[in-house]
Computed example of a mutant assay.
Amino acid sequence: MTDGGPDGFEAWLRGRVPERGLRSKGASVLQVLLTQPRRVSYGSAAEAAALAGVNVATVSRTAQALGFTGWSDLQQELRARYLSSLSAPDVASAQHTEGELGTASLRRDLESLAVLNRRLDEQLLRTVAEAIARARRTVIVANGSYLAVGSALGHNVQLAGYDASVVHDEAELANAISRVGPDDVVIAISFWRLYQSTVTAAEEAHERGARVFALTDAASPALAAAAEEVVLIPAEGVAFFPSLAPGLAMAQAIAAQLSTVDPDRTRRSIEAAEAQWSRFHLLHRTPRRD
């Protein structure tokens, strides 16, 4: 892969190299990452070490020098960025998924959820929830199938008692971003090959002083620069489809954390919503009142 543009794979990886540079063996590992992303995206640390002519410990140290906790975390983001450079047919070909794709998809989701749980930064979760709680309003930007993640988050933020809207139509998005300011929060949700409209919305919101958070598997430099924080979420699926399960899990985690910021406010909001659900006869079974 030779994508060396400002938003490209090579630029991202070289941008993580510390100012002091890497030792010669670390530089050999970096060269393998740059020149053989497909092999190392799916291989073990031992395979990466063999390709670079170093030992496994050097691979781990290089991963840490690049800002990761170790090889597995580096590989996770490396693969996400490698896959984001491919077309949908190429993604299916690169993955070489064996067996029934339905069960493979479930296994992949379970693996991704385990990675998400292992990498979860609880302070980051609190930061996002508290920002939403303090905001005048929250604008959630999501497109395509990722709208499922945005809709789940927006619905629960509203239930928790806070002003939130989910925007995906581009004209509506332009209008919504034109109204945001320093008192607002914008949450940009996009995975795999990022939607340009989502990145543009994040950039414009940042310019207008809003607090911007990105939920993604591999933020481009442009999206990362616009966001106050990037919440990295595994999104690798099977066949042609990115996984939505980890993104939905994170949306639920943010909503759950938000409910603890002002529990009385959230309780009042849910009670008011419950009354309206009853008034509109929305539920098949009416909850029993003790």
Rank of each mutant, 00 (worst) to 15 (best):
M1G: 15
T2L: 15
G5A: 15
G5D: 14
P6L: 04
E10L: 14
A11M: 12
A11S: 15
A11F: 14
W12M: 13
R14C: 04
R16S: 04
V17F: 05
E19G: 10
E19A: 13
L22K: 11
K25P: 06
V29G: 10
Q31K: 15
V32I: 13
V32H: 10
L33Y: 03
T35R: 14
Q36F: 12
R39L: 15
S41L: 09
S44A: 00
S44I: 00
A45T: 00
A48E: 06
A49P: 08
A50H: 00
A50F: 01
A50I: 12
L51H: 07
G53R: 11
N55K: 08
T58W: 06
V59I: 12
R61D: 01
T62M: 12
T62C: 13
A63S: 02
A65K: 07
G70R: 04
L74F: 11
Q75I: 08
E77D: 09
R81C: 01
L83P: 02
S84Y: 12
S84C: 11
S84L: 10
S87V: 00
S87T: 14
A88M: 07
D90C: 04
A92Q: 03
S93K: 14
H96G: 02
E98M: 14
G102E: 15
L106F: 02
D109G: 03
L110V: 01
L110S: 05
E111W: 06
L113P: 01
L116C: 08
L116R: 05
R119F: 04
Q123S: 13
L125C: 02
L125A: 07
V128M: 07
V128N: 05
E130W: 10
E130R: 14
E130L: 07
I132P: 03
I140T: 08
I140E: 03
V141F: 08
V141E: 08
A142H: 02
N143R: 13
N143L: 06
N143V: 07
S145A: 03
Y146Q: 10
L147P: 09
G150F: 02
A152K: 00
Y162D: 12
D163P: 01
A164S: 10
A164M: 09
S165L: 08
V166G: 01
D169F: 02
E172S: 13
I177P: 07
S178D: 09
R179A: 08
F191C: 05
L194G: 03
Y195K: 06
Q196F: 08
A201Y: 05
A205Q: 05
E207K: 12
R211P: 13
F213S: 09
F213R: 14
F213E: 13
A214T: 03
D217G: 12
A219S: 08
L223M: 09
A227W: 07
V230I: 00
L232A: 09
F240K: 13
S243C: 09
S243G: 04
S243E: 11
L248V: 00
A249L: 12
M250S: 01
A251Q: 00
Q252V: 09
A255V: 00
A256W: 01
Q257A: 15
P263W: 10
A272D: 14
Q276R: 13
Q276T: 13
S278Y: 05
R279Q: 14
H281E: 15
H281S: 14
L282A: 13
L282Y: 15
L282Q: 15
R285E: 11
T286I: 11
P287A: 06
P287N: 06
R289N: 12
D290G: 10
